[in-house]
């Protein structure tokens, strides 16, 4: 339990610092940090259900995209910033490293396995983000068509 708490806290702090690197200011930093924490929390929370880190990454990417869309609507600014930073704890940095290490040691099978695994993780993030953004776009288009007088703006 404390393990979970601590790793979520670390993800929170690291995402907050990333927000500073990409020049996010004011309350945005906190929102990004919460996003990073939330991403890792949902990753860990879905572990007993899914038992696969690719599926867990997918769930976390879904949660975080929703979070970013909601936050963008609340703060009336582009969704980009929150999504970009909050996704970082899910990025397979370890995967890149171990793939490289296996390649260096000439372990072809281990290299291929970790390479495909890294690609799978990246793909899970992609599909998660893709699903939510596409759904939101469709919903916006639907609302625009049902009320032609009111021009919705896409944050």
């Amino acid at each position: 339990m404390t393990d979970v708490l601590f790793s979520v806290l670390f993800a929170f702090a690291a995402s907050g610092a990333f927000a500073v690197i990409y020049n996010i200011r004011g309350p945005g930093v906190l929102i990004c940090a919460f996003g990073g924490g939330l991403a890792w929390f949902s990753y860990l929370l879905s572990a007993p259900l899914l038992h696969s880190d690719i599926a867990q990454t997918f769930v976390a990417a879904l949660v975080i995209s929703l979070y970013a869309e909601v936050m963008a609507r609340i703060r009336k600014c582009p969704v980009t910033g929150y999504l970009l930073v909050a996704i970082f704890p899910l990025v397979p940095g370890g995967g890149i490293y171990y793939t490289m290490e296996h390649a260096m040691e000439g372990e072809v099978n281990a290299f291929l396995a970790s390479f495909l695994h890294t690609l799978g993780l990246a793909g899970a993030i992609a599909v998660g983000v893709l699903l939510v953004s596409s759904a939101v776009r469709m919903w916006t288009a639907f609302r625009r068509q049902s009320s032609p007088m009111k021009k919705e703006e896409r944050p």
Binding site: T80, L84, V91, A122, I125, V129, S133
Partner: peptide
């Protein structure tokens, strides 16, 4: 790691 470029690419 290219996390930002990747997410932007997907969008």
């Amino acid at each position: 790691v290219p996390g930002i470029i990747f997410t932007n690419a997907i969008r």
